[in-house]
Amino acid sequence: MPGSPTARRRRLAIELKKLREGHKLTCNEVGEALDWSGSKVNRLETGSGRVQPSDIDALCRFYCTTDELREFLKQLAKDSKLRGWWHAHGRAVPPWFSVYIGLEQDASSLRQYQCELVPGLLQTPAYTAELHRVTNQLAGEELERHVNVRMERQEILHREDPIDLWAIVHESVLRHHVGGRAVMREQLERMLMVSQLKNVTLQVLPFNAGSYPATGAFTILGFPEQADPDVVYRDGLTDAVYLEASADVSQYAKAFDTLRATASSPPQSASLIKRVLEEYSR
């Protein structure tokens, strides 16, 4: 079964919760019937606990599922225990960000708004290195590992079935000097080049755009299977927030649509990037 272990774990949790809710039972009621704790059922449904084959068998017998569904859930549980390529990078991928990379690898679309920095999938090695050097005080091999992770993530834009990226950046991102003029020239050239890909749409929200939702940076991850609902991701310096409630996701989707309508068109955005690039070249 294709997909990252993180995404498989999430899908398994969704399916288990769907089964319980379909029977109109609480976690405590299921736990009591199986001689488990209600907290164990909750852990299985939130993906925060390892699911054993015996757990799947017990739940499927209790819910009277088909053999086909039971085997499907067992395969999800098996796949969720695999290690993704990013785990080999050790401390360069903290646990809170490991979850995001796993979801990003399995996503079919990303809708992203950045108001401070160039989106990670569009960054150059030099730009990425400068961010990690200043933010995390990194140097040498450790810095190189962090840069390699970001560059490897960018492969999803070029794979056989590439992710669909729609990125909106505020004009301040273009004018925020990160690493000096040479680094910024290379970075803006990179953004222009990637924006030419058929699966990438890039817009700039100019200073004169007027009012727009003050959301801060966020990413909406969409998935190829209808059973996997969208996720909103917001990151901080040492942690991240994942929003999956349909009301939350809907609010961010509306905000993104407003930002998309307010921002300059892709051709106009490319022209603005070129003008800023000329300023860095003087």
Rank of each mutant, 00 (worst) to 15 (best):
I168F: 10
T66H: 04
V173M: 02
V178E: 02
N199Q: 13
R11K: 15
R275L: 13
E152M: 11
H158P: 00
T26W: 12
P119H: 11
S80F: 11
A245E: 14
P53V: 05
D239T: 06
D79Q: 12
L138H: 04
L122W: 13
K17Q: 14
L59Y: 04
G3E: 00
G140K: 09
I56G: 04
R150F: 09
S98R: 13
S265P: 05
E244I: 07
M1A: 11
D161Q: 13
L16G: 10
Y63A: 03
V30E: 06
D248K: 05
T66V: 01
V51I: 12
Q251F: 03
P266H: 13
A245F: 07
A255C: 14
L221Y: 10
G47P: 08
S264D: 12
V51H: 06
G31V: 04
L121I: 11
H177T: 10
P266S: 10
C27K: 04
Q114F: 00
D248A: 11
P125G: 10
A88G: 05
E278H: 13
P2I: 09
F207Q: 08
Y233I: 01
A217M: 03
L122M: 15
Y127W: 13
P213G: 08
E189H: 08
L121D: 12
D239L: 04
A247D: 15
T124R: 08
H177D: 13
G3I: 00
E244K: 07
H170K: 02
S39E: 07
E186V: 06
R190I: 03
L143Q: 02
S37F: 11
D164M: 06
V183T: 14
M1K: 10
P125R: 12
D164K: 06
D55W: 09
R133N: 04
Q123E: 07
L16F: 11
V41R: 12
L16E: 10
P2F: 11
A263Y: 09
N42E: 06
I220T: 03
A88D: 13
K18T: 13
R61Q: 14
S109N: 04
V241F: 11
P266A: 09
A58E: 13
F256P: 03
L121S: 10
L197K: 15
A92R: 03
